[in-house]
Amino acid sequence: MSESARDAILGRLDAGARPPEVPDGDFQVMAGRPGTVSERIERFRTAIEAANAEVHATTPAGWPAFLMARLNEWGIDRIAFGRESWAGRQLIGDRGEAANGLVPFEGAIEDFKETLFACDAGLTTTRGAIAETGSLILWSGPDEPRALSLVPPVHVALVRTGSIHATLHEAMTADRWRDGLPTNAVLVSGPSKTADIEQTLVYGVHGPRRLVVILLADVPGGDDGP
């Protein structure tokens, strides 16, 4: 069935009058304002805060301490993370394997599902961020399972300030996404939300209710943290 359907569909498309070729459009409008690093940080922060995310700032070396000191305040008892991601290695290196509340993702999701559904938060790195829309770029992989940013009610994301792009178009072209996309790349622009009931905005439907962004000032010009 599939073979013949394929041939029939493509056959009809091939047989139809060929539409005139359309030249490439002008992508200039996608460029947005490039801006300096601090301008991009500010725009990113404003946009993602407008979508109800919380933004904090610290240093690339100091974030594990910063995070652990706030877990209590944020009501997080157990935070899951990818053991082999740079963040996971740094966290364990800094705090030790047995630190209270740290739950590294073990094995495949089938074995880890119950544990993950019982966690309060998931910690992920990001490939970068987008200033214009206030978006995180999540890049899944063996060290960054997809469910970490999805299943627990709180998602904590680390963003290096030097990786904030002006626009989505700039991020995908400058970073050459086309040359190698992961299984799943996701742009996240706030906590999960809906407006299906009388257009009333409600946060926390199926994904995380809270999105906590921790900016790591890794380039000059950024926010140096508290």
């Binding site: 989505l168 799943n184 742009l187 996240v188 939300k193």
Partner: peptide, 9 residues
Amino acid sequence: GITTYVNMI
């Protein structure tokens, strides 16, 4: 400006 999630599989 963008939806909460843009999923690229």
